Amino acid sequence: MTRRHTAGTLWLAAAHPSPTAAWNQWATTPTRFAVLPAGARWDAIRIGCSLAVKALDELDAIERAGAPVLWGLREGSARAYVLVPPGTARAWHEPPTRAIGAGGWVAMPRPGTDQPDPGFRWEPAPDGSGRLADPETLRSALRRVREGER
């Protein structure tokens, strides 16, 4: 299998204690996902089912800013993983989202490839710059959506 060494893929793989293990997982597991540790290069905010769908417009502003977002759009379990700066998870208290930081792991497809599970995609994919979502922008977007539900 040929590895596409895009800057974003190299950046993600480098989050793993053994980047070669990430490449091997992307190449050999049936799902083509690598399980990567949060807390060093990024933390992730998991936004669940209904909130992820309702927040699409708000998150579009974050996407346009280039912050990587992993979308899992399986029917009945839509979720988005927004990559934010390391350390964000320690102070994140925005129900019903879940922060994944140091000690947590996230299964991620390799950016820029067709996945066996088309329900997962990067939009936008990491570009290798290390650009991440601003936690306060994300927090504000989520609060606006929740306030609109009242």
Score class of each variant (00 low, 15 high):
residue 62 I to H: 02
residue 102 A to L: 14
residue 41 R to W: 07
residue 101 G to V: 07
residue 123 E to F: 06
residue 108 M to P: 02
residue 59 L to V: 11
residue 123 E to A: 13
residue 94 E to D: 15
residue 62 I to P: 04
residue 85 P to G: 05
residue 103 G to K: 01
residue 79 R to Q: 14
residue 129 S to V: 00
residue 56 L to N: 14
residue 123 E to N: 15
residue 88 T to C: 05
residue 116 P to N: 04
residue 50 S to P: 01
residue 88 T to S: 01
residue 35 V to G: 00
residue 65 A to Q: 08
residue 46 R to F: 03
residue 89 A to I: 08
residue 115 Q to D: 13
residue 117 D to Y: 02
residue 60 D to H: 14
residue 91 A to D: 13
residue 97 T to A: 07
residue 131 R to T: 14
residue 132 L to M: 03
residue 102 A to P: 02
residue 57 D to L: 15
residue 67 A to I: 05
residue 66 G to S: 12
residue 99 A to S: 13
residue 91 A to E: 14
residue 98 R to C: 09
residue 84 V to W: 00
residue 118 P to V: 13
residue 125 A to F: 07
residue 110 R to H: 01
residue 119 G to Q: 12
residue 76 G to Y: 08
residue 49 C to F: 09
residue 54 K to M: 13
residue 122 W to F: 03
residue 87 G to D: 02
residue 66 G to M: 04
residue 44 A to W: 02
residue 110 R to C: 14
residue 34 A to L: 03
residue 82 V to D: 12
residue 99 A to H: 11
residue 128 G to V: 05
residue 94 E to L: 06
residue 71 W to Y: 10
residue 50 S to A: 13
residue 85 P to R: 10
residue 71 W to R: 08
residue 123 E to R: 12
residue 93 H to K: 09
residue 133 A to D: 10
residue 83 L to P: 09
residue 37 P to I: 09
residue 120 F to E: 13
residue 71 W to D: 02
residue 68 P to L: 07
residue 36 L to I: 12
residue 115 Q to I: 00
residue 45 I to Q: 11
residue 69 V to R: 06
residue 40 A to F: 14
residue 88 T to H: 01
residue 35 V to Y: 01
residue 85 P to Y: 03
residue 105 W to Q: 10
residue 71 W to H: 13
residue 54 K to W: 10
residue 74 R to E: 15
residue 50 S to L: 12
residue 87 G to N: 03
residue 120 F to K: 08
residue 34 A to K: 08
residue 110 R to W: 01
residue 40 A to V: 15
residue 110 R to Y: 01
residue 105 W to A: 05
residue 108 M to C: 14
residue 82 V to H: 10
residue 95 P to K: 03
residue 34 A to I: 14
residue 34 A to H: 08
residue 48 G to Y: 11
residue 36 L to Q: 09
residue 55 A to R: 06
residue 93 H to C: 00
residue 98 R to P: 00
residue 57 D to M: 10
residue 61 A to V: 14
residue 48 G to L: 02
residue 93 H to T: 08
residue 59 L to K: 06
residue 116 P to Q: 04
residue 98 R to S: 13
residue 68 P to H: 05
residue 132 L to W: 03
residue 105 W to P: 01
residue 68 P to S: 05
residue 68 P to K: 11
residue 124 P to M: 06
residue 90 R to T: 15
residue 54 K to G: 05
